[in-house]
Design a protein around this nucleic acid. Structure first.
Lengths: 344, 344
DNA sequence: CGAGGTCGGTTTATCGATACAACAGCCGGA
DNA sequence: TCCGGCTGTTGTATCGATAAACCGACCTCG
């Protein structure tokens, strides 16, 4: 910067002012500075700027795994949206573990990110607050037990109730809820209360209990596509067959579709299936997957708003935002015989 | 750091040495320092460290889009692998455009990343060299026209040849190559020579030409899942039917499966389909998708090796590495009637 | 016995940008 | 003529960590 200043015949401070726009500079000197910058190919050193300013312009995004459609699609949206605010995003993978998430929070502080978007599965609000200290954090994707951290959630209970409700309405009476913790442990808030699976399972259970003739079993095979496949196979081969499957994520649902197919069961002729998340792939599977679509865009907007707000005002009162949901019906729950227009 | 030094009764430099491990420190002072660090809750300021060291410990990863399975799965692998080298990864989305990629390279310099992994689709090696300057860059995923930049590629031509060969071997004679540029323009290196689609198309064409009775048409609908769906529908409704589809990416292939289903065509009974990339979803589609699996792990290892090498020695001779490939046969190309063990 | 090496530690001078206070002109009003 | 207020510009201290040189004290080896 000193070289540029010399070349333009001004002080370094003036160069700084031109480049950051913090203080007004006369048109002619400004032109001279920009000319010199161009000529010398100068670029500001972000490390030095960060050191002095105390901010980095980088926010962390911690997700359980990047290679899952829901999170990678979320990451894509968020990266793009935050770029418009002049913020870069670094992605951390937590492996869906408490330790991984704690490490991500620590990392964010060590690396002096300006903020962190944490898609927490293991950490509760208490932990987050304790670990984060003064780091702005927005929790994402599930209800936190305490109201002490900014949080963007989705309508887990309501969405899952609607999903299960759809199957019941379509005539299913013997359901499986894939991804659900044991049926009788849903009411305890769990380790840190409120993971998405528990809440969604709760919603599904509500719907089932509202129909006397209906029964359901809970299955928690894991969260991967392969887990869904395995689960679908087991369901198909089980002694007592099911006629409807509520999968608590689309990834599981897509796996279930595959698993059922392995065993020769047809969807929706023999079994109906509904998912949750509305990932891209759900619209293009065979059969296409009915699913609960949380308001992706609304949630991203809310995350950005809360994050910027807290970065601006660390003392702001924590806020919770819940996105809307829409139940999308596709082939996987159409009663046999009723066809549908292609593409939805 | 000064406070810690005071609390431990040593100099700041000793604290620095304890924390960075650059120079040996006696066991007792080390303990005293760590104690003070713990007690005061001290954390190093990375901005200051970066300023002084001239390195940031961050590398960029520029991909066309995060929400595509291939790239998000790649990103996941790379994030994880580079973490083991003590490097963080920030992800940029280029939108598959020349400008986006150029911006990513510029950004990497502005933000002083230590290196960049560039999954280039628009930029040629010449551009990369010019833009990158002294920034260590490893290009990924397609053959570069010139040998002037480190590059990890896959067996595009050979893999696609094998894929098309499989269909021909299975008796297909009227193929479609989805994602292929116009058949007669494959030999020109294009704008900057060697995008993956062109090379894969070349491979497919070679296989087709080797069988006199076989013919093929090229279709380039785009790269998204939806593009594949549309294409599948069009193929199904076309006046002259096809009996085999080579889709140049799995994402397109999965879309094609859906599009064909929309029109009532069955895979593999009416049409065989093969993809390329071996994304996770390919193993769990209905029918499961035969595909060309590039050596994912080998490629990631190669990227890491080349990147570290160049970061250590900017003057090293550029190197090219090509991964192996394996053709995985699944349901989508099994001749009708021949069933298969579940899971593959 | 002296040259040279190792060990654990300190001192000092940066890295590059920016906050802040100070200051030089200049204008309008008293 | 002088003064307060404005605009545009500059000097300088500072952000926090670390590379490099340096310092005793002790050891080794020819």
């Amino acid at each position: 910067m000193r070289d540029v200043a010399a070349a333009a015949g001004v002080s370094t401070m003036t160069v700084s002012n031109v480049l950051s726009g913090r203080r007004p500079v006369s048109e002619e000197t400004r032109a001279a500075v920009l000319g010199a910058v161009e000529r010398l190919g100068y670029q500001v050193n972000v490390a030095a700027r960060s050191l002095r300013r105390g901010r980095t312009g980088v926010v962390g995004l911690a997700v359980p795994a990047l290679d899952s459609p829901y999170f990678s699609q979320l990451a894509g949206r968020l990266v793009e949206r935050l770029a418009r605010e002049g913020l870069r995003v670094v992605v951390e993978q937590t492996g869906a573990s408490r330790e991984g998430e704690a490490a991500a929070v620590r990392d964010s502080r060590v690396n002096a990110y300006d903020g962190l978007v944490l898609s927490a599965v293991g950490l509760g609000a208490g932990d987050v607050r304790a670990l984060a200290g003064d780091l702005p954090v927005v929790a994402l994707g599930e209800r936190q037990d305490l109201r002490r951290v900014d949080h963007v959630g989705m309508a887990n209970v309501e969405g899952a109730r609607a999903a299960a409700g759809l199957l019941l309405e379509r005539g299913c009476r013997r359901l499986a809820v894939v991804g659900s913790p044991p049926w009788d442990r849903l009411d305890e808030p769990g380790d840190h209360g409120g993971d998405a699976f528990r809440l969604r399972a709760l919603g599904a259970r509500e719907a089932v209990r509202a129909v006397p003739a209906a029964s359901a079993r809970a299955l928690a095979p894991g969260t991967l596509l392969e887990d869904g496949v395995r689960c679908g196979r087991e369901l198909a081969l089980a002694a007592d067959p099911v006629d409807g499957v509520v999968a608590l994520t689309d990834t599981l649902a897509l796996g279930v579709l595959r698993g059922l197919a392995d065993a020769g069961l047809r969807v929706p002729d023999d079994v109906l299936v509904v998912g949750f998340d509305d990932v891209r792939e759900a619209s293009a599977s065979v059969p296409s997957l009915s699913t609960v679509s949380p308001g992706h865009d609304e949630m991203v907007e809310a995350v950005v708003r809360l994050l910027l707000r807290r970065m601006a005002d660390p003392a702001a009162e924590p806020e919770e935002v819940f996105g809307p949901f829409v139940l999308l019906e596709r082939e996987s729950t159409r009663p046999a015989g009723r066809s549908l227009a292609p593409g939805r």
